[in-house]
Design a binder for these strands. Structure first.
Lengths: 361, 361
DNA sequence: TCCTGGCACTCGGTACAATCGAGTGCCAGC
DNA sequence: GCTGGCACTCGATTGTACCGAGTGCCAGGA
């Protein structure tokens, strides 16, 4: 009964009209408006009866009798899945993207941060950028630096230019030389290895060194698994404009402040292979009135984080999908060019990426 | 005429009553309410005539005839300067602060970030934490790490545990050994020197090394001056609750997103030696309806950043002042204990800091 | 059978008046 | 110089009427 897959063609057209108009106006849409919409050639009366059916099937709802209809989450879902293809960015936006990726030249973090701003600017919603996981990242350098007599800092430089660190409590006082020796051993063991899989086989002659190395290794392990719980959130201020109830804004922002929640939301979406999550589809109560559009970022086919857009459920899906996809793709290329050691390093202004052409015209 | 300094005692009492009540209720305050307030022993009629005077002198205003009065920026200013002393934190809050500083144990950035959350939680406003400037920071380690054939990363570890980095474009391909040699020279030159004042005197034998060193030095200089344009903003979601117009929220958040603006605002306030800035007193139009409370953070008497609270002009100043002051002070101590090399490093759970006692009971 | 125009009905939004009440300014009197 | 009293203002609330967008239903026509 609720077989979703195919709504009768006319119903689909009506649903599309309702969603499109509601996205634009934020006002409940009445049968007359739908009748006037392009591609609909039946009277408003007919549309009314169809709308009753759509409502019964859960695609639409009425805020109150004698008002127009607004889409339900299910309605949006159908719209996104069946009625709309990715959409294309406008020329202005496309230019913004191009210019951005031509000009940006900086550390990883700053790049992600700015990408996040870009995405937010393109769509007028908040955006989220999830950095590549460190599990697979290759260490370029590992170093122990003494901070105090009993505190050392483990500094790891990854191939992508990221630097991670962690302070280590050395229960007892440790000599500079011991630290240095440990640092050398660590560097040798970790260099060019993925962060997750560093081991030190043989013991050195000095048990004090071994002790420090062991401590550092466990810290390294923690880094590998933990450190990627960061996201870059862009343009939260635009959320205030997208909603009208101040409490909604407050609740959504509060959720966005909890990086952990955002990270797991994004990961979850990615794992489920989705690109859009609407309203209650994710489990977060505070984000009930939000939708999230996600696009993966990949470097040479390997997953390397994601970009996301967070807006009201009545967001402009085609546009958001297009923006996320394009920015995700370009970001992947950019990461590849700038940071991947196998590539030609210094990024030139113009590079037509070698294609894996995807119906983008 | 507008001599501010002294309002007649009774006027001052009335002003105080109005401000206090308005801070609590956000409703215009009428003469009857004031008459009922503690410490006021005159009739509402008398108060009315005094209020007329206060309004004429610019301390109060009426949203419309036949409404109560609300304070102007000038009114708040007088309240803060003359009518209120710092205030004391409630026991619950004080406990939160203590527990926080006992438990927190992590890198600099995370500590600042969390401090920011703490401050926001204490006050229910947004908070801002300005990290210590790097100008004076002492380098613990300087390192060059090759990322690609023509790209190297300059990694600097500071005594406070901060790590800064900057990628360097080496116009031409550079050998690992050259990089290593340059790295060693840099480290020697920079170790234990303040970031701002690193120089390399003698040339090495190898011009290629010298070239790389020169590039790195200039990058180092940039780092010293630029890198501190960061702030940690906490609890922006609470702003949504503090204002009621959604556009205000949006404007304020947008301003908060521009780190640069926030940094210069804070620095400006610090330089002017103020601890409170109200409404139009700072020059930022978008923050017209905001007030900022700032407290310096100092480590052993040296300025080391600041903490700030950003809320509506009708914020609870005594509480905010107290919170900022206490957190700023504790943060300074904490930074000292954790990161200052001259101190006893490993921070134990209980340390009665040696005081510089300040009327805190 | 399905679509359509027509019709009665619903109900939120707006406009308007009446009322209420918190608050004011002014003034005569203590 | 303070106070109580009084007339007045004006936003907020309530009630009423009305408009109009929108609905559901139905009889008639392709």
């Amino acid at each position: 009964m609720t077989d979703t897959q195919d709504l009768d063609l006319r119903k689909a057209a009506i649903l599309e009209a309702v969603v499109s108009e509601y996205i634009g106006t934020a006002q409940p849409v009445g049968s007359h408006h739908v009748a006037r919409a392009a591609g609909i050639n039946v009277s408003s009366a007919t549309i009314r009866s169809e709308m009753v059916a759509l409502e019964r099937e859960g695609y639409l709802m009425q805020p109150h009798t004698s008002a127009g209809r607004i889409p339900t989450d299910k309605g949006y879902r159908f719209f996104v899945d069946q009625l709309t293809e990715p959409g294309v960015l406008g020329p202005v936006q496309r230019q913004k993207v191009s210019r951005f990726f031509e000009q940006v030249h900086c550390e990883m973090e700053e790049m992600l941060e700015r990408t996040s701003s870009l995405l937010s600017e393109l769509t007028s919603y908040a955006s989220v950028v999830l950095p590549p996981s460190h599990e697979a990242a290759v260490a370029r350098s590992v170093q122990l630096v003494g901070l105090g007599p009993r505190v050392a800092l483990l500094v790891v430089v990854l191939a992508d230019g990221t630097v991670e660190k962690r302070s280590i409590d050395l229960a007892e006082e440790v000599h500079e030389e011991v630290l240095a020796a440990a640092s050398v051993r660590l560097h040798a063991a970790a260099h060019s290895h993925p962060l997750g899989g560093v081991t030190v086989t043989a013991a050195s002659g000095d048990p004090r060194v071994d002790h420090v190395v062991a401590l550092a290794l466990s810290a390294l392990g923690e880094l590998a698994s933990e450190a990627h719980d960061r996201v870059f959130v862009g343009g939260p201020s635009r959320l205030a404009a997208a909603f009208d109830a101040v409490e909604t804004v407050s609740a959504v922002l509060a959720t966005l402040e909890q990086q952990l929640v955002v990270v797991s939301l994004l990961r979850d979406v990615l794992e489920r292979g989705l690109s859009v999550v609407i309203g209650a589809e994710h489990g977060y109560e505070s984000l009930l009135s939000c939708a999230v559009v996600v696009a993966p970022v990949s470097v040479e086919g390997q997953p390397a984080g994601a970009v996301g857009i967070l807006g009201p459920t009545r967001m402009n899906y085609p546009q958001a999908l297009a923006a996320a996809r394009v920015v995700g793709e370009r970001l992947g290329q950019r990461l590849h060019e700038s940071f991947d050691p196998t590539a030609g390093a210094a990024p030139a202004a113009e590079h037509r990426p070698r294609r894996r052409a995807r119906g983008r015209r």
